[in-house]
């Protein structure tokens, strides 16, 4: 399990984490695609799933919130992965801590893990220290 570094001003608690299976998968995907990023989706079909892209493929804006930064590398070879969500969606999600897990599946969207026959999935728990941020 890797906790993301805190990136929101005046906060002290990590909001996102990677399950061990996600760390392992992301290291493999990094070797294939290079630096990576996450953007949390909403809406239908594959909505509510975290989308993993080559870093920079998805253009974030001031209307997105950086929830945290993972590092799946080591001291000699840092491999930072940013985790983003739209500001309007964060208004409804801010009271929950998110863990990026992996399940077998066939996700659509352009997320890089889909060809592996697996899909990133969010598991949530309530954050006692962060109610509410809207």
């Amino acid at each position: 399990m890797i906790d993301a570094a805190v990136t929101i001003a005046e906060e002290s608690t990590s909001r996102v984490a990677l399950a061990d299976a996600s760390v392992e998968l992301l290291r493999k995907l990094w070797d294939h695609y290079g630096p990576l990023m996450f953007h949390q989706s909403g809406g239908c079909c594959d909505g509510s799933s975290p989308m993993c892209y080559p870093a920079g493929d998805f253009i974030t804006s001031d209307n997105d919130v950086l929830l945290g930064v993972f590092d799946i590398g080591d001291a000699d070879d840092p491999r930072p992965i940013e985790f983003w969500m739209s500001r309007e969606q964060f208004a409804y999600w801010s009271h929950t801590h998110l863990t990026v897990d992996v399940v077998a599946g066939r996700g659509s969207g352009f997320s890089v893990e889909a060809p592996e026959g697996v899909r990133f999935l969010i598991r949530s728990r309530l954050m006692e220290t962060a109610l509410p941020f809207a």
Binding site: H39, S48, G109
Partner: peptide
């Protein structure tokens, strides 16, 4: 495209 918001934004980009 029909799907979800993040991919929708990517498509629009």
């Amino acid at each position: 495209f029909t799907g979800e918001t993040t991919t929708g934004r990517l498509i629009l980009q």
